[in-house]
Design a protein around this nucleic acid. Structure first.
Lengths: 205, 205
DNA sequence: TATCTTTTTGACCATCTGGTCAAAGCGACG
DNA sequence: CGTCGCTTTGACCAGATGGTCAAAAAGATA
């Protein structure tokens, strides 16, 4: 008993296809608004076939969200107290902005989950996330103690980095509507703006 | 024909009750994830009774979203070129933050709509919203020309005000999870932080 | 009180939704 | 080739969902 069957190439491919399709659908309609049929159609599979790889709609959603928070926080983990304060922070901002540009669906999936009260990841938020943020907040405070950056509330500093960068993924439609036809890629402008913002706010007077 | 029936007191009360219940449900589950039964139950009405006041689920959603963008932009309209630049901008930030505190459901409803591609209000975004923002952007640029604030990209300045303030409504769960038990109201801290941020960024060097 | 309009409801319906199942198709391997 | 296990599918199901309708209840008005 408990025999582990090998994972075939077909399984690998189909699981990946399904998750990609589900990311499309969930990130656009939220969990409740998405249907298994939509995901199956997007993935190019029949519904029973899809349910052969994932037992339920929830299972697909959980599989997607599972690793997401971790991936999402990698850039923050990379912020080292040994580096120069301002460049470290600006590098974090830039990596986060790049993630918004390159993985907008993941950002929207995450936003949807949180807006709806984070029923699935609340534990991780007040666990792993909180611990990591507390740890990095220490570093920010230390840098301020040493006079290497201006003092700010470190937790709210992180909130501002998250909201400012993710805004360009989650509210993409609005950003483009307001900027109009003249701007086809808002991200270069955004990068300049955010660099200016954090530089001015954090440069010691 | 085309006789207009008067709006009774019962109609006023029930319509309001329904819209309030719908705001609860839509803001938490998104349009697709919400059901008419949930709204009816929240409003304390039977489903046919609810559908006596609004013909369809869509109609309720549209009624809610209808005036929302306008209300949402009132604080921006109040920003006057005749005032002192920095206080005008800080007042806008503060009013927007107050709206996040006092009307989080409206903020989430709006966020949901935009994340899902703004199918219902895209026209207003690239119409009324864009016009208003362009007009106010002029004022920002003028103030920068006169050396009364530091120069920034005005459109992205507005994006940053929106994202930073709305974050405290839309991502409330995350904010509270990260801040932990010690903080029961994040808004005072947020106000201090945002004031610092915009003051440092915009004060001419 | 009688009449007329507005409001409320139980019963109902077609469609959609998440999910099941038995059987058929298919590929690897001896 | 034949067998065995993995993959795919059409048909199906129970419950949820958006919405309808005729009739009953409740106001308003006189």
């Amino acid at each position: 008993m408990n025999e582990t069957r090998p994972v075939t190439r077909i399984q690998q491919k189909n699981r990946a296809t399904i998750l990609d399709a589900a990311l499309d659908v969930f990130s656009q309609r939220g969990f409740g608004g998405a249907t298994v049929d939509q995901i199956a159609a997007t993935a190019g599979l029949s519904k029973p076939n899809l349910l052969y790889y994932f037992p339920t709609k929830e299972a697909i959603y959980e599989a997607l969200l599972g690793g997401l928070l971790d991936t999402w926080l990698d850039p923050l983990r990379a912020m080292k107290s040994s580096g120069e304060p301002l460049p470290e922070i600006l590098a974090y901002v830039q990596r986060k902005l790049e993630m918004s540009r390159d993985f907008p669906r993941e950002s929207r999936l995450f936003a949807n989950e949180i807006i709806q009260g984070a029923p699935l990841i609340e534990n991780e938020l007040s666990g792993a996330l909180r611990d990591l943020v507390d740890e990095k907040a220490e570093i920010i405070n230390q840098w301020a103690d040493e006079g290497r950056i201006a003092r700010v509330n470190p937790h709210h500093l992180f909130f501002s980095i998250w909201s400012l960068t993710q805004h360009y993924a989650d509210f993409d439609v609005q950003v483009r509507a307001v900027l109009g036809e003249g701007v086809d890629d808002p991200f270069p402008e955004a990068q300049v703006y955010l660099t200016t913002l954090f530089t001015r706010m954090l440069t010691p007077s």
